[in-house]
C-alpha cells in the first residue's frame, strides 16, 4: 500500500494560548474525499488553518505528513505551492485588486513551483472564462475587485473557481456549502466533483448532510473538542442528522 497523501498524528495546537486541537488523528488517501462534521467551536476551522499554516496557530505537538514530507516545516505559501488549498469559511476582500489579476499571480506562483510554464494574460483568461462558465458565474466577477461586494454565495463560488484554477492535490473546503442557494449548491458540488481525481484528496467541512448527497464522501469524521471522536461511512452523516451530536460529542 502506498503512503497516504495526508497523515495527521496526535496533533495538538493552540490559538492565543488556548489549546484547540487536542490529539487529532486523521489519514487521508489520495483519491478520497473525507467529510468533517462537528459542533460549532469544535476546532474544524482551526484544523484547516493549522494545515494551511496560518500565523498564530501554534502546533505544540504531533505531526502532519503531506506527500511524504513534513508539512509543518513549510511556510504558508510553500504549502500552497506544494498543493494545499483552503476554501475559506469567510473569504477575504481585497479592494482594488481585480479577481483575475490576483488569481493569475497565484496560479503562476504555483505553476512556477511545479516547474510548469507561466500563463500569459490571454492563456489565463481563456482558462478562467471556461471555468467561470462551468460554475455558471457571470464574467463581470473576473474584473471586479476580489470578493469586494460579492454576496456570500458568490464568494463561496469564487473559492471553488480558484480551486479549479489552482488544481491542488489537497483541497480543504471549510463550510463552502453554507450561504449557497439550492441551485448554487448543486453547481458548486458539480465543480468539486469534477475535480475528484485519483491523485487528489479533499477534506470537506460541513454542518449539513445535504452537501454529502452531492459530494459523496468516502468517510465521515466527527470532530469534537479538538479530536476525531467518531469515523464512519456516508451513513454516519445521515445518523447525525437524526440524532445530533448528543450521543457522540460529549
Amino acid at each position: 500500500m502506498s503512503a497516504p497523501l495526508l497523515e495527521i498524528k496526535d496533533l495538538h495546537a493552540k490559538v492565543d494560548g488556548k489549546e484547540i486541537l487536542r490529539g487529532l488523528n486523521l489519514t487521508l488517501e489520495a483519491g478520497q474525499v473525507h467529510a468533517i462534521m462537528g459542533p460549532n467551536g469544535s476546532g474544524k476551522s482551526t484544523l484547516s488553518y493549522v494545515l494551511a499554516g496560518r500565523d498564530g496557530y501554534e502546533v505544540t505537538s504531533g505531526s502532519v505528513t503531506f506527500k511524504g514530507q513534513d508539512l509543518l516545516a513549510l511556510a504558508t505559501e510553500e504549502r500552497a505551492r506544494a498543493g494545499v488549498f483552503l476554501a475559506l469559511q469567510y473569504p477575504v476582500e481585497i479592494p482594488g485588486v481585480p479577481n483575475a489579476t490576483f488569481l493569475k499571480a497565484a496560479v503562476n506562483a504555483v505553476r512556477a513551483a511545479r516547474g510548469e510554464s507561466q500563463y500569459d494574460a490571454i492563456e489565463f483568461l481563456k482558462r478562467a472564462k471556461a471555468k467561470f462558465a462551468e460554475l455558471k458565474m457571470d464574467p463581470v466577477f473576473l474584473s471586479r475587485a476580489l470578493n469586494v461586494g460579492f454576496s456570500g454565495g458568490e464568494k463561496k463560488r469564487n473559492e471553488i473557481f480558484q480551486m479549479a484554477m489552482l488544481e491542488p492535490s489537497l483541497a480543504i473546503l471549510d463550510e463552502t456549502d453554507s450561504g449557497l442557494d439550492i441551485d448554487a449548491l448543486r453547481i458548486v458540488s458539480e465543480g468539486v466533483n469534477a475535480l475528484r481525481a485519483p491523485d487528489r484528496a479533499m477534506l470537506v467541512i460541513t454542518h449539513y448532510q445535504r452537501l454529502l448527497d452531492y459530494i459523496v464522501p468516502d468517510k465521515v469524521h466527527v470532530l469534537s473538542k479538538g479530536r476525531i471522536v467518531k469515523t464512519g461511512g456516508k451513513e454516519l452523516a445521515l445518523e447525525l442528522e437524526r440524532t445530533g451530536y448528543a450521543g457522540i460529542a460529549a
Binding site: A52, R54, D55, A75, T76, E77, R79, A80, R81, F85, L86, L88, P91, V92, I94, V97, T101, F102, L103, A105, A106, V107, A109, V110, A113, Q162, L166
Partner: peptide
C-alpha cells in the same frame, strides 16, 4: 488579507505588493 494571499501561493512580499 496576507494569509489569504499566501494561502494562494503568493510570497508575503508579493502579497503586500498586490
Amino acid at each position: 488579507q496576507l494569509f489569504y494571499c499566501r494561502q494562494r501561493g503568493l510570497s508575503t512580499e508579493d502579497a503586500v505588493s498586490v
